[in-house]
């Protein structure tokens, strides 16, 4: 479903060229619960941006549902991101002026869906993550764990191929972090949702069925599929 072949990424910094990713090969199948672990500066954020279609590889191929995303123009790439990727960020990245329901609705708005249908779907998914009682709250009125649940609902609302979670528990206390992690695991096990978690925390990584480690731009699989 998701296949990276010899993906490289380098940045130019003045006259120097810094290679962040060196020949990454990764295959993610439907229903996987995969962790990518690595220290800061290892290139894991860059890898996540490439998987999430926010950045393009300098070399190599990335196939998403059999299509090579390197060849896509911005509109196609954006539509593809909208349809296939659900982001969960460490800092939640909710829009402060919108309610929980409206935040969850944003991906569907860019799909051009009708307003009533959008609201119906957003409400259903918020109920699923246990936020059905707080659809009208703004992010400022929610706790960290609640915000992350809203963010997870937003990631799920468009039925993406993969949920990409970047340090999803990084900004939460231990107890809430565990709750959020359990939610992601539950979504994976019960609904077969593909989840990729980027983290530097080994205890998070251990809860995933597939574990990988990135170091100096090289990715290695720890568990054998």
């Amino acid at each position: 479903m998701l296949q990276l072949v010899d993906v490289e990424k380098s940045y130019r910094l003045g006259a120097m060229s810094i290679q962040v990713l060196r020949g990454i090969c990764l295959e993610v199948a439907k229903g996987d619960l995969l962790s990518i672990m690595g220290p800061s500066g290892s290139g894991k954020s860059t890898l996540m941006n490439i998987i999430g279609l926010l950045g393009r590889p300098t070399a190599g191929s990335y196939f998403l549902n059999g299509r090579n995303v390197r060849l896509m123009k911005d509109r196609e790439l954006s539509a593809c991101r909208n349809a296939n990727i659900g982001f969960v960020f460490q800092s939640f990245q909710l829009l402060g002026h919108l309610t929980a329901l409206e935040n969850v609705a944003v991906p569907l708005v860019y799909r051009g869906m009708g307003r009533a249908e959008i609201r119906r779907r957003a409400r259903t998914i918020l109920e699923k993550v246990g936020m059905g009682e707080r659809t009208g709250h703004k992010p400022g009125q929610l706790s960290g764990g609640q915000k992350q649940r809203v963010a997870i609902a937003r990631a799920l609302v468009g039925d993406p191929a993969v949920v990409l979670a970047d340090e999803p528990t990084g900004a939460l206390d231990e107890e809430t972090a565990d709750e959020v992690m359990q939610l992601l695991i539950q979504l994976n096990q019960e609904d077969g949702i593909t989840v990729v978690i980027i983290t530097h925390d080994p205890s998070i990584a251990r809860q995933c069925t597939r574990q990988t480690r990135i170091c100096d731009g090289v990715l290695r699989e720890i568990t054998q599929p």
């Binding site: 926010l54 911005d74 954006s78 990727i85 990245q93 909710l94 829009l95 860019y110 937003r154």
Partner: peptide
């Protein structure tokens, strides 16, 4: 800027 980044991540194209 942040809002623009979020919207882009959620599937907004440049045109949007």
């Amino acid at each position: 800027r942040r809002e623009i980044g979020i919207r882009r991540a959620l599937g907004a194209s440049r045109r949007d």
